[in-house]
Computed example of a mutant assay.
Amino acid sequence: MTPKGYLCPATEPEVPRSRRPWPPPTPYDREITDEKTKIRVTVVDSGLWKDAVGSAESPWLETDDVFAGNEDLEQVIPTKIHEYAGHGTFVAGVISCIAPETRIDVEAALPYGGAVFESDIVDQIQDALEENKPQIISISAGTHTRDNHELLSLVLLAQNNKFDENDDVLIVAAAGNDSSNDPFYPAASAKDYPWVVSVGSVDPDKKVSDFSNFGKDWVSVYARGRNLVNAFPKGTYTCHEPPNKGKVRKFDGLAQWSGTSFSTPIVTGLIAAEMRDNGLTARAAWDVVRQTAITEYDARIGEDIQIVGPLT
């Protein structure tokens, strides 16, 4: 299929019908006070809108769990929320809902919604590996490549950091939102490397979302990516894309959003929670999560798919 060129994410943020997040926060009654024992996740994204952390609207983003360096804080003008604003914050919020008491460091590697040199994002990942020592790196961005070649710089990064030999480093990446089976990197590296998990999106009815990329040879798993609700900047947003171009939406700390960008942190959270609860490495936890998958046949794409996580 030829990619249709959807936005990443698949939709623009919408005003939620409910003030409750989806997925809902998972109950967890133990506070982890020793920072050294928390599972460490790095979110490579648009940065962090700091006002969401510890706020009344998104209390699941706890001040002792979610962090960003000064250079990774997202500046938002409330009267004119910019395109892609809040993306990294939303992703961090989904992870926090699924896996409370996880340390999440948000990097501002993609301030322009994915328009970044491959070398720059790899440098950002390398910095995160050195500074935060993440066990899971969650990436809700990517690209199709010329002749479907893999991202050489990412492979070199993995070689230099010995990802093949380290069971406790895992990249979880979005499969993309082009309704295509063409490989989308870095997610498509899952077909060749055990340190990458590729995540597509399904709707609550277990069918592949009409925007989601797919492909049994490179999409590892699917999770719900339709109409999630989580933290978003307060203020006014003017839509950029048809059919809602020019429509003004007012937000008060939460948004509803769709895309493989948001099915990805569900899988990240499931893996982090398994690591937290059972003392497993990242790859061992992924194996356990994968074993919980249900198999569904999707007639539209003509494939069996594996689905994990909550759906309704």
Rank of each mutant, 00 (worst) to 15 (best):
P16L: 03
T312K: 08
P186H: 04
Y84F: 15
F184H: 09
P194S: 12
D45H: 02
D127Q: 14
K162E: 15
C8N: 13
K234V: 15
V169G: 03
I77V: 12
D252I: 04
L156A: 14
A293L: 05
E131D: 12
D164A: 14
E35M: 13
R226W: 07
P111H: 05
G69A: 09
P186Y: 02
S201H: 09
Y28F: 15
N160C: 11
T264Y: 00
H144D: 00
A92Y: 06
E62H: 12
Q126W: 05
A85D: 05
D203S: 13
R276C: 00
G235T: 08
K247A: 09
M1L: 11
F262V: 04
R146A: 15
W286E: 04
D147K: 14
E131H: 15
D127H: 11
I136T: 11
V91L: 10
P183L: 08
L170G: 07
C239M: 06
Y297Q: 07
N161P: 05
V44A: 03
E274N: 08
E57I: 02
L154P: 03
D127R: 15
K245E: 15
V199C: 04
D277A: 08
I98K: 11
T63S: 11
A52G: 07
A173N: 05
D168M: 05
Q306A: 14
T26C: 11
C97S: 15
K216V: 14
A52R: 03
T268A: 07
R19W: 09
T260V: 02
Y112L: 15
V106M: 06
L280A: 06
I121V: 15
P3D: 02
R103D: 06
R224Q: 09
S189G: 04
I98Y: 06
D72N: 13
L154V: 14
P243Q: 04
M275W: 03
G142M: 05
A115M: 09
I39M: 08
W195G: 00
I125E: 03
I136A: 08
V106W: 04
I139D: 07
N148Q: 12
R283V: 08
V288F: 05
G47T: 06
P13V: 11
L157I: 07
F262S: 00
A188K: 01
A10H: 01
F262I: 07
L254Q: 08
L7T: 13
R19V: 09
T236W: 04
D277G: 11
S58V: 00
D252Q: 06
W286I: 06
I125A: 06
E296K: 11
N160A: 09
K50V: 11
A188H: 02
P23I: 03
I171L: 15
E83Q: 14
S212E: 03
T145E: 08
P9V: 11
